[in-house]
Design a protein around this nucleic acid. Structure first.
Length: 272
DNA sequence: ACTGGATCCTGATCGC
DNA sequence: TGCGATCAGGATCCAG
């Protein structure tokens, strides 16, 4: 799935094609996503509206019109791309906005773990209001993470993937950030020192920023809005590299399962 | 309040 | 080549 860099890449990719464009028609082929697509509300609010902005909060994409926001989450396997409207749709193109300029914004999601919602004010939605801070927020600092970690027994890897703490850190970037910070993924959160917390915050920001500049990470099915894959996969130091030599110390990268998710780390460089 | 586990769904891959 | 089992980038909900 798209983690934060993939979502950011998607926003940047579609924005120039849809901002200031008028939505003329919606096509909803499959409304059964994580939650049912609110078809009638979308039609009522989006038709004849001009797109004002494309932004995101956590991994939720906000497409703003005058009366509110179309909110799209890509789940594990979703993509959002702009095509000329005459290009035939593909399998799993569940939702699309036809634009006056002859283009179409298409949402494709084989696993249907994503969602499409409407909100006049997204901050009123429960799924949005419970979100933690953005990793690039000024407040996301060592002190913040340290305070959040101090009473928790879960592993540090699970903690940073928790979106009530910090948003946007998914399974790939969690492993990569911990490697960069030199912290073992199984370290109990309440044993994280302030120094380590600072290092980890910085690492998360560095990794996410780098991934954004590379257009995200394509493992299988993520594509940027122009159809190209993301190139950050070439920069992955531990994720998916089980038994391969560590780029720093040559020791073999280990794979373990933490909370049902595969986790990769170097047993020497992350040995606390 | 926290924690671990189950759950939604399709498609790719692997072992037999 | 075919089949079943397993795994995948997320996040919510529930029982304990």
């Amino acid at each position: 799935m798209p983690e934060l860099p993939e979502v950011e890449t998607t926003c940047r990719g579609i924005a120039p094609h849809i901002i200031d464009q008028t939505i003329t028609q919606l096509i909803i082929r499959e409304k059964r996503l994580r939650w049912l697509i609110p078809s009638e509300i979308l039609v009522k609010n989006l038709i004849s509206q001009k797109v004002l902005s494309v932004t995101r909060r956590a991994k939720y994409i906000y497409i703003q019109v005058t009366t509110g926001y179309l909110i799209i989450h890509l789940g594990m396997s979703g993509t959002l791309q702009v095509f000329p409207a005459n290009i035939p749709h593909r399998k799993h193109d569940h939702f699309e906005c036809i634009l006056k300029n002859g283009k179409v914004l298409r949402y494709n999601d084989p696993r249907r773990f994503g969602c499409i919602l409407w909100a006049e004010d997204p901050t009123q939605l429960k799924i949005i209001s419970t979100l933690g801070i953005e990793p690039f927020d000024k407040q996301f600092k060592g002190e913040y993470l340290y305070q959040k970690a101090i009473h928790r027994k879960i592993s540090i890897k699970e903690l940073i993937m928790h979106n009530q703490i910090v948003v946007g850190v998914g399974n790939i970037y969690a492993s990569e950030s911990l490697f960069l910070a030199g912290i073992h993924p199984l370290l109990p959160a309440n044993q994280l020192t302030l120094v380590e917390a600072k290092k980890l915050c910085k690492a998360i920001q560095v990794i996410l920023e780098k991934a954004i500049t590379k257009g995200g990470t394509t493992l299988k099915d993520f594509y940027q809005s122009d159809g190209k894959p993301g190139y950050f996969s070439q920069q992955l130091k531990v994720y998916g590299r089980e038994q391969e030599p560590c780029v720093n110390c040559k020791k073999k990268i280990q794979a373990i399962r933490i909370g049902q998710r595969m986790t990769y780390f170097c047993p020497k460089c992350q040995n606390n």
